[in-house]
Simulated scan of single mutants.
Amino acid sequence: MSSDHAHDCPCADPITQLRQLFVNKTMGTRINAGQDPVRRAVFLKPHGGAKATWWVRPHLPAELRVGLLAYDQLAAWLRFSSDTVPFASDLGTTLGVGIKLFGVHGRKLLTGEEAALTHDLVLQNYPVFFVDTAKDMCEFTYEGLVGDGYDAYLAKHPKTRKILDLMQQNLASVFDAVYWSGLPYAFGQGRYVKYRLALEALNPQPPGNPQLNPNFLHDDLRSRLLAGPIDLHFSIQLRTNPKLMPLDAATVEWSSELAPPLHVATLTLPQQDIDAPGQAAYVENLAFNPWHALPEHAPVGSISEARKVVYQASAELRRQRNGIPIVEPRQPRHDLT
């Protein structure tokens, strides 16, 4: 993909330029305007954070007991959010979930955090990304922030427009979404997967009025977890056809017929109050980076390579400005008694 501004767009080094656009320009502009506390570059609007337990399914075949799946049980914290600003309505937003698993031993891929005992997973509510490569992402972002605007780019790139429209869903609950990694990951030596997270059955709740409540996703999340525990199924799609399942063409969906999702673990969110004192602040101060991971689960593709740099720089700037230590937590937050 390329825009008419490609000759003006400094995307020969897309990762460096994306860091400049998301961290220096986007976050820097907000900081200069007085944003306090400083928020993330993307997925700014939190719906709530929840503690959870990761259970690996018993009797998995030995060939699936890779990395995280070698553990029977891990503590976890989840952050549900939308890719919009905090004061905007929850209607028509792209939903995401960040997962931080605790007690994961071994070297991590992110420089400076080799000895950390956590592992991150980052997913959103659509099975593909809206551009194919880091260069495409750079051109899209540059056009939007510096060039003629996002509409001008989308007018020339109908596939990207279609995917972005499909990502902006009207959902009554964060648990109505099916979350995908979108991008591929290694799965041990020579194998690759994509991730899927979904609730298999949702207990109906009386619908609220999203038109009157811009924060209805938070209220629904709180209501459901006050009522009782919820289980989310974590699945993997094993790559079976390299030609039809590319590693650096992120708009290409991996067929569920060729690669049926395999349920390998369950995240159990116990009954809890997501508005308990300190819980929201704890989760907002966490940083999620898909490269904060075991080598067995290394992210793959140029967009993932860009994420490594941009996410780390964004988290370091946010934590530094907010007075938060730039380190991974050693233990999960426990209930106050």
Results as ranks from 00 to 15, higher is better:
1 M>R: 09
4 D>M: 07
8 D>T: 08
9 C>Q: 07
10 P>Q: 02
10 P>F: 05
23 V>K: 02
24 N>H: 09
33 A>T: 11
36 D>K: 14
37 P>E: 14
51 K>N: 12
55 W>E: 09
55 W>R: 13
65 R>I: 11
76 A>G: 01
79 R>L: 04
81 S>F: 11
82 S>R: 08
87 F>G: 08
95 L>P: 04
96 G>Y: 05
96 G>H: 09
101 L>P: 01
109 L>T: 02
110 L>F: 13
112 G>C: 09
116 A>Q: 06
120 D>F: 00
121 L>Y: 15
121 L>Q: 04
128 V>E: 10
131 V>G: 02
135 K>H: 15
136 D>I: 00
137 M>D: 11
138 C>S: 12
142 Y>H: 15
146 V>T: 08
149 G>F: 08
151 D>K: 06
158 P>V: 14
160 T>Q: 11
169 Q>G: 03
173 S>V: 02
175 F>P: 02
176 D>Q: 07
178 V>E: 14
178 V>P: 04
179 Y>N: 06
180 W>S: 05
180 W>L: 13
191 R>L: 09
191 R>V: 03
193 V>L: 00
195 Y>I: 04
200 E>H: 01
208 G>Y: 00
209 N>M: 10
209 N>G: 05
209 N>Q: 14
210 P>Y: 13
211 Q>C: 05
217 L>K: 01
222 R>Q: 14
225 L>G: 01
227 A>G: 12
228 G>S: 06
229 P>I: 04
229 P>Y: 08
234 F>S: 06
241 N>G: 05
241 N>M: 06
241 N>R: 04
244 L>N: 12
246 P>S: 09
252 V>Y: 11
254 W>L: 06
254 W>M: 03
257 E>I: 13
259 A>H: 06
260 P>Y: 05
261 P>H: 08
268 T>D: 03
280 A>T: 05
285 N>D: 09
287 A>N: 09
287 A>Q: 09
289 N>G: 06
290 P>Y: 09
295 P>W: 10
296 E>V: 03
297 H>D: 02
301 G>D: 13
303 I>V: 14
306 A>N: 11
312 Q>D: 01
316 E>R: 15
324 I>C: 02
327 V>N: 05
333 R>G: 10
